[in-house]
Design a protein around this nucleic acid. Structure first.
Length: 804
RNA sequence: GCCGCCGUGGUGGAAUGGUAGACACCGUGGACUUAAAAUCCACUGGGCGUUCGCCCGUGCCGGUUCGAAUCCGGCCGGCGGCACCA
């Protein structure tokens, strides 16, 4: 018989809302648990099954934690600023706030429809002025501490969005969001000095429980390297500073290379004999985007400076200086020492320009390729006082020598760049800064916050690269907070990452009016105990929010150094056929359709059963139906009156095992095997009719996955209170043991038979039983038993040799 | 190029040193039905042989071990991240 899922699910969803069943209360005696999922961007398409997987997973965890006796905070909100809404507003001439309101209403309805146990009194919306007031406040604190600054720099400009992008938002030379080409433009931008936190963002990863992949990717992105800055004397009389991680190879330096943008070049204009050639090369490099420069990495280009040479401080020999675009101005000093014997790029460059290649570390074949060391092997040669040393010893020895000579110093470098924080768009948080002709940039005073977005007639971005706000002269023209004279507001807005960098703090106290959240609430709920989200946010949102949190920690605003104790990640749900779901492929599954056809509980069970949670999984309509069949079986089993509150003898053992397995599997996010175990238990109960006590435990164990149905059946069986508020059942290991065990019998490591023996039988007893087997006796005929390996209750392996 | 992950039936996947394929999907046969759907029961890795067995089998080749999907080395293939970062 099928159950009436639509009536049952509606009934319990309304009950939970009306009774605020899942409202979190700050404080109390219970231990707290704060489970977090990434809040959605409320797009016009509505919720996607891609949301359902991570949301259901954390809902299962949150529901189980409540049954485990935790005080659980499981909140949701909307990351609602952003381009799609703005573009939709432009196209349809609707205010983005209206679009946002409608989309949020739709998302909210869908999230309720899936039965998530969110605390609906704590919903956060980043576009709410009561929220973005505090986003602006954090920006002002950063400005006051010198972490927010405005500078003119080449930026990534998306030709379609007509907007600046952060480095992290440019993927393969195109805009991460719209796929249009990204070009370089000089623009004045607000920047956040995330690089000042680079070391802590790296080091503090040691103290958090993030999955290794996330830690590796963050460390990779930060790209810390320990090396030296070294000064090379130049024949012009000045010095050239390079950065290197391989100072041990100094004797192998046969040339220098400068970035085309290196500022020292202009000072050498009258000394460089081939200036015209150099200028032409610089002009060409300037026309290329970073992407083009790195894409053309097959063939090295460059210009040799005529009339200027450097001196190798180790060999005292004069060496040529080149300009080449493989050296980037943005990393290190914009100048490198060329060590062709031991750096592959230098090797290629030297080959192309006919430069000498000197071996200073023996062990490779520098005729064929550079001998670059990965594991500190090799011995120093042709290197004066370093000769005979291992590389491991040579590096500190050379560092010491360079410092003693006063020609260099130890230096740490990072790939991480400061965060480009301005966007030339309307639908974002206004940056609360005023430009005064007398005072320069002046922050708004905190009592002026929130600085509201003005109503504009058109949200169209401008081709000049100015925000739509720049046309709002009434809003732009203001007075200087410092001198009171006429001044102009900043018209750029913040990127979408701003609002999401601290939203988890707001959930702790979402209606707080005198701070981002009350100290009491933050002391109680911090840190987030478990944050699950997508790998695509590892180098963006996750890094940015850790940075903001550390800044707030330094201000004394938040109580912990790190925002998240534990971070896990889910795999994507792919369309049928194994491709990414997308509108253009037409393979998008809408949760509304699945819920209408099978109910929310089936969708929840399916997305948890689909496969390993951490890996990508392919949608299968057939398998969804299988999950519905499972729930129908549960319904049929549990909706008939049952008697006897004790566990039935027939099912007792399997029930205790299931309690243990489902509990540990949920804790480890192995939802698929938890459900497999529950399916086995249901199959068992179908064979051996369950008692009322059996049914009770089944409902409790299944409740996190299929909460509506379990709650209904709980009521039908007449159990007290709510199933979701009952205590997670305990298992008794002594009730799980088998009296008899089936033992695998191997001959020389190959399985030949099985025997049944009493549990806990010793080696001799098992051996005796094995030899009783006709098959085993047949194998043992005419053989000596040389050795017997016994694994208690599992296996016995007889090593046989022919009798002499 | 560097870093990381992965490779198991027709399919999704279990099993992380001890009976490979749990659980499910698909498929086949049966029961029920006037019939179909639904439901229930049985079978379901490949091959040889048919009461009962035997051989092969976790991308490929080797190694360690009494015993390897699992550990180690080397290939092949796929996915993700970073990428002229000195």
């Amino acid at each position: 018989m099928e159950y009436d899922f639509s009536a049952i699910e509606k009934k319990w969803q309304e009950y939970w809302v009306e009774h605020k069943t899942f409202a979190a209360v700050t404080g109390g005696d219970k231990p707290k648990f704060y489970g977090l999922v990434e809040f959605p961007y409320p797009s016009g398409q509505g919720l996607h099954v891609g949301h359902a997987r991570p949301y259901t997973a954390m809902d299962v965890i949150a529901r189980k934690k409540r049954m485990d006796g935790y005080n659980v905070l499981f909140p949701i909100g909307y990351d609602a600023f952003g381009l799609p809404t703005e573009n939709y507003a432009i196209k349809n001439h609707i205010h983005p706030a209206v679009v946002t309101r409608d989309n949020i209403a739709n998302f909210s309805r869908q999230l309720h429809m899936l039965g998530y146990s969110f605390d609906w009194d704590r919903v956060v919306d980043t576009t709410d002025p009561a929220y973005y007031k505090w986003t602006q406040w954090i920006f002002l604190q950063m400005y006051k501490k010198g972490l927010a600054y405005k500078t003119t720099m080449p930026v990534n400009w998306c030709t379609s969005c007509k907007c600046v992008l952060a480095n992290e938002e440019v993927v393969d030379g195109v805009c991460e969001r719209c796929g249009s080409p990204v070009i370089r433009r000089e623009k004045s931008q607000w920047m956040l000095a995330i690089t000042k936190y680079a070391d802590r963002l790296c080091d503090d990863l040691d103290d958090v429980d993030f999955i290794p992949r996330v830690k590796i990717q963050q460390r990779n992105w930060i790209g810390r390297s320990e090396g030296m800055e070294m000064n090379f004397a130049v024949t012009t009389g000045d010095t050239l500073t390079v950065y290197t991680t391989r100072c041990d190879t100094l004797f192998g330096v046969t040339y220098m290379v400068l970035s085309p943008e290196h500022p020292i070049l202009s000072g050498w204009k009258d000394k460089i004999q081939n200036w015209d050639e150099l200028q032409a090369y610089k002009d060409e490099a300037a026309r290329k985007s970073d992407f083009e420069r790195s894409e053309l990495n097959k063939d090295k280009t460059g210009v040799r400076l005529e009339g200027v040479r450097a001196i190798n401080p180790a060999t005292k020999e004069e060496i040529p200086i080149y300009v080449s675009d493989y050296v980037l101005m943005g990393y290190g000093t914009g100048a490198v020492m060329g060590v062709p014997g031991h750096d592959q790029r230098d090797w290629e460059f030297a080959r192309k320009f006919g430069l000498p290649v000197i071996e200073v570390v023996a062990g490779g074949d520098i005729e064929k390729e550079a001998f670059t060391l990965k594991d500190d092997t090799g011995t120093m040669v042709n290197s004066g006082f370093l000769n005979g040393m291992t590389v491991k010893d040579a590096i500190p020895a050379m560092k010491q020598w360079v410092e003693d000579q006063g020609i260099g110093r130890r230096k740490t470098n990072y790939k991480l760049r400061d965060w480009v924080f301005s966007r030339q768009r309307y639908w974002g948080e206004p940056i609360p800064m005023v430009k005064c002709p007398c005072c320069g940039w002046v922050p708004l005073s905190e009592d002026q916050l929130p600085l509201l977005l003005p109503e504009v007639e058109s949200y169209e971005p401008t081709d000049t690269g100015e925000s739509p706000l720049s046309k709002m002269t009434d809003w732009v023209n203001t007075t200087c907070p410092q001198c009171g004279g006429p001044a102009q507001r900043e018209t750029d807005t913040m990127p979408q990452w701003a609002g999401s960098s601290w939203y988890f703090l707001r959930y702790m106290d979402p209606h707080c009016t005198d701070g981002i959240a009350s100290r009491e609430a933050m002391d109680y709920w911090s840190p987030v105990d478990w944050y699950n989200g997508g790998m695509e946010h590892t180098t963006l949102h996750l890094l940015y929010s850790r940075f903001w949190h550390k800044f707030l920690y330094d201000l004394g605003v938040v109580p912990t150094k790190e925002p998240y104790r534990k971070r896990t990640s889910h795999g994507m749900i792919l369309g049928e056929g194994g491709e990414k779901m997308s509108k253009s492929r037409g393979n998008v599954v809408n949760p509304n359709d699945i819920v209408a056809q099978y109910g929310a509980d089936t969708l929840r069970v399916y997305v948890m059963f689909i496969g390993d949670f951490t890996k990508a999984a392919e949608w299968s309509a057939k398998a969804v139906a299988g999950c519905k069949r499972f729930l129908d079986r549960v319904w049929n089993l549990c909706s008939v009156p049952r008697t006897d509150d004790a566990l039935s003898r027939a099912n007792e053992k399997e029930i205790h095992r299931t309690i243990q397995k489902v509990g540990s599997d949920i804790d480890e996010m192995k939802f698929n095997t938890a459900l497999a175990q529950l399916m086995s238990l249901v199959n068992k109960m179908n064979a051996d009719q369950p008692s009322r006590g059996d049914v009770k435990i089944l409902l409790q164990l299944l409740d996190p996955f299929a909460p509506h149905m379990c709650e209904e059946l709980w009521q039908i069986q007449g159990f007290e209170g709510l199933c979701c508020e009952s205590a997670w059942p305990a298992y008794d290991e002594s009730k799980m043991v088998d009296e008899e065990k089936t033992i695998a019998v191997q001959i020389n490591g190959k399985l030949r038979d099985t025997v049944v023996v009493p549990a806990g039988s010793d080696k001799d007893a098992v051996l005796a039983a094995a030899l009783q087997s006709r098959k085993i006796a047949g194998y043992a005929e005419g053989m000596d038993i040389v050795k017997v390996i016994h694994v208690p209750d599992k296996l016995i392996n007889l090593i046989l040799k022919p009798k002499k």
